[in-house]
């Protein structure tokens, strides 16, 4: 058996492949419950991370010719990212389990030799209480690092802390 190619940092110059339209997952004409997802990325000193690539992937609604289900957005000079997408519904889990609506997130940046993986959940979703991944996190404050808060109608925010107090729960898959 072979071993997978080693990961290396995306570095500070990945914007050479950036296409800022990728942050809008509705750009090919997908319709549904449109939501805006925002957040700010902080390092272990509380400083803004201004050169990261944030990627999102969702399995609900399913990817199609008009819905890529994938997006990428830079963090700007304020450390902020912003996506427009369709709100996911519940997602099948293993066996008979059901997962709460969620979006997978990958974070790439200078100083990260591997991508960091996490998930975004939505505040006030009843299924959050029984979600198999959220249920693995016993500490309520830790669990909250994955739950986006509603900032306006159709707008949700989740800040990401790479290190230190309130560090986001990152995942290994």
């Amino acid at each position: 058996m072979l071993a997978a190619t080693a990961s290396q940092t995306i570095g500070p110059y990945w914007h050479l492949i950036e296409d800022d339209t990728w942050a809008d997952l509705t750009r090919f004409g997908a319709e549904g419950e449109t939501v805006v997802l925002t957040g700010t990325v902080y390092d272990g000193a509380g400083s803004l991370v201004t050169d990261a690539a944030i990627e999102i992937w969702q399995t609900s609604p399913a990817a199609s010719d008009i819905f890529p289900a994938f997006g990428r957005c830079r963090t700007d000079s304020n450390g902020a990212f912003r996506f427009t997408t369709l709100k996911p519904g519940p997602v099948a889990g293993l066996g008979n389990a059901q997962q709460a609506p969620h979006i997978a997130i990958s974070i790439f940046a200078r100083g990260l030799l591997n991508a960091l993986i996490t998930r975004l959940y939505f505040q006030d979703e009843p299924l959050n209480e029984t979600d198999p991944v959220l249920s693995m996190i016993e500490d309520e404050a830790r669990r909250r690092t994955l739950i986006a808060t509603r900032t306006a109608s159709g707008a949700w925010n989740l800040d990401i802390r790479l290190q230190g107090d309130n560090e986001t729960v990152f995942m290994e898959i």
Partner: peptide
């Protein structure tokens, strides 16, 4: 690699099951 100092998570990552999302 200096840029890792304040950017690497200090906590062990949560090993999650691979669902359709992954």
């Amino acid at each position: 690699y200096g840029s890792t100092h304040l950017r690497h998570p200090a906590r062990v990552p949560l090993r999650i099951p691979q669902t359709i999302t992954e």
